[in-house]
Amino acid sequence: MSSLAKSGAWERLFWPLLAAGLLVAGWHYSVVWTATKVFPSPLAVEQGLAQLLRQHVLWRDIGDSLRRVALGFCLAAVAGVPLGLALGWYPALNQVVNPAVQLLRPISPIAWIPVAILFFGVGDKAAVFLIFLAAFFPIVVACVAGVSNVPSIFRRAARNFGLSPLQILARVVFPAALPQILVGLRIALGVAWLVVVAAEMLAVDSGLGYLVIDSRNSGKRYDLVVGAMLVIGLIGLALDVGFRQVEKLPSVRWGSRRES
């Protein structure tokens, strides 16, 4: 695209660090110039986080949020992947079930909150249920798409070698669809992380989302609010990057390579 300048790896580190530095500096100075009493400066945020760390509260909240996401996400995967595979493999089944899925899918998990609280009360189970909902539909949709997009040439070759339909599904269709399924899982994880914050704001009393809302409500501790936001961002990023590493495994990596 732009000039093919020879640049070392150091440049890749330099520019983002520069940008980040400028951002933090800009933040700091705008706080100073506007003499705001409420909005925290970068330093205040750092101190606030350190305090939480010392009180061991931060780790507990992080653990709670991660635990709920892990539980809800795994349940969604365990339920959604087989269902998605079945829907993709049996078009007749898909034709029957798909409209129901398409109607339920756009109902924001957050709109389910009152119902979730009604069923599960305020607490962990409600949060896990919401995360399950948030992840379930993207996973099912991605699995259906993955199976449908398996080139027919693979299925023909598998039939040629005398495999039974179930064997074809397990040994050919599933590995062939796996790259797309993993992308769907990664996106579902992203949505789950987004929703857990909402769920914790409204339906439970621990976790990073709760930390955000509580820090403000009980004491206008905006330093903790911003601190919690940053932690949410970093963990979300780590989850995303971690998942992308899985997508780079050799038996899956082929799915994202463009063959020219």
Binding site: R12, A20, V197, A198, M201
Partner: peptide, 24 residues
């Protein structure tokens, strides 16, 4: 170069649930 500078920042901001921005 602009991408090298901005991309990591955007990647950190994106996963911050918009709902976490509510107090702000």
């Amino acid at each position: 170069r602009a991408e090298w500078a901005i991309n990591p920042l955007a990647q950190i901001f994106r996963p911050i649930s918009p709902l976490a921005w509510i107090p702000i």
